[in-house]
Amino acid sequence: MEILGLYNYWVFAILLLIGLYAVITKPNFTKKLIGLNIFQAAIFLLYISMDKVDGGTAPIIPHGAAKDIIYSNPVPQVLILTAIVVGISTTALGLALVVRIREAYGTIEEDKVISMDRDQ
């Protein structure tokens, strides 16, 4: 049952590979970015999974709370918030590049762009 109990980590690994596969095989620049996003979402899942403490609750301490409450670890959540911001910036910049590529080449297919550069 241990294998099933660790299902978040299985989902993490599968999502990671789906994302990486899309980045490598799709010739369309936008689809590559979508793949990159799936890839990054997998890492968010890894961090969120590791902060869970058995029986732990949200790490908010109410005024005058009892001492023996178990809290989940808030640090990975904070870390991954930062990583999400980084991911959004990367996606935004990537999409801006795709727009510029479309303006300059008239296509967003990688193989066509490469062959146009070769003819130049």
Partner: peptide
């Protein structure tokens, strides 16, 4: 214009590299 696909490739590979680093740091943490 050849700067654009060159940047895109760098962006994709750079992000994958940094994400791998992030996974490694997460596991160590």
């Amino acid at each position: 214009r050849r700067a654009l696909p060159a940047t895109f490739k760098y962006l994709v590979m750079g992000t994958i590299g940094a994400s791998f680093y992030l996974i490694g740091v997460g596991l160590a943490y």
